[in-house]
């Protein structure tokens, strides 16, 4: 197993969001993490990326405890694209993507050709080479997220974590970003953990899914196993029908209105 999370107790102050949580992930997997607000998705991401120190339990990567690594060392293996990264200062796209090389640079050394190459490759892979000289503050939401993925790729990571990357994107950009992620997963063997709100997108793109409820694993497995009418009703309390995606065959959730539920008692 590449990633091992064992008996994790993690939260904020005295409030433990995750308690006794375990998870294993093979290299090259594409795992989507879903669940209602406050179920512990983001806490899990923070714990795996070392942004939050767990009260107990371990997180290890390729057999090594991430808290025993130097921050730079971890950053060469794990890259994170957050939901919204406010960039208020006027960096160009290229400057921002080049920041992805930070974990490789020692204090007194300048960027080498290898660094420039990694930046260029990241720009190419995300189709942002044409934006290189634009200011990040002037980009659209979709462009900005692609640039953030480029910055993550410049880190040349083995594990890419996306925390609700499509939250503020329109449907075309959501699909574009997830197509990109899937391509990186399939063609480069990049291991991906994506926290997603949209069950349909998660089921369509991820190889396996993890559904959380109240900080605990409610369901885990292939999208067909996880996205069922019973699971969605139990975890979200929503009435849905699950059909199948016409092209991909993945489960597809159709939301039913709550009012009808009350009227007909047909939930």
């Amino acid at each position: 197993m590449y990633l091992n999370v064992g008996n994790l107790r993690c939260g904020y102050g005295a409030r433990m969001v995750l308690d006794g949580f375990s998870l294993s992930l093979r290299k090259g997997e594409f795992l989507a993490v879903v669940g209602p607000n406050g179920c512990g998705k983001s806490t899990l991401v923070k714990a795996i990326s070392r942004a939050l120190r767990p009260a107990a339990g371990t997180v290890s990567l390729a057999g090594r405890d991430i808290w025993r690594m130097k921050p730079r060392e971890l950053a060469r293996q794990v890259a994170v694209v957050a939901q919204e990264t406010g960039v208020e200062f006027d960096f160009t796209v290229e400057e921002l993507v080049a920041m992805g090389r930070l974990p490789y640079l020692s204090r007194f050394r300048r960027e080498t050709e290898a660094d420039d190459l990694a930046v260029r490759r990241a720009l190419e892979a995300t189709n942002t080479l044409g934006l290189a000289d634009r200011l990040v503050t002037g980009l659209s939401g979709g462009e900005r997220q692609r640039v953030m993925v480029a910055r993550a790729l410049a880190q040349e990571p083995e594990l890419l974590i996306l925390d609700e990357p499509t939250a503020h994107l329109d449907i075309a950009h959501q699909v574009e970003l997830l197509d990109l992620t899937r391509r990186l997963n399939r063609e480069r063997g990049l291991t991906v953990i994506a926290v997603l709100h949209d069950l349909n997108l998660a089921a369509q793109y991820a190889g396996s899914m993890l559904m959380l409820k109240d900080g605990r694993r409610f369901a885990e497995g292939s999208p067909v196993q996880v996205v069922t009418e019973a699971n969605v009703a139990a975890v979200y309390g929503s009435r849905v029908r699950v059909s199948s995606h016409p092209e991909e065959g993945s489960p597809h959730v159709i939301l039913l209105s709550g009012e009808r539920c009350r009227d007909e008692r047909a939930c």
């Binding site: 060392e73 971890l74 960039v87 930070l102 974990p103």
Partner: peptide, 20 residues
């Protein structure tokens, strides 16, 4: 200088870039 640049992206993003 480099670390301060990363910090402009937010503390968590800087952390993810390996900045202590």
């Amino acid at each position: 200088g480099r670390e301060l640049n990363a910090l402009l992206l937010g503390e968590e993003s800087a952390l993810h870039l390996g900045v202590d």
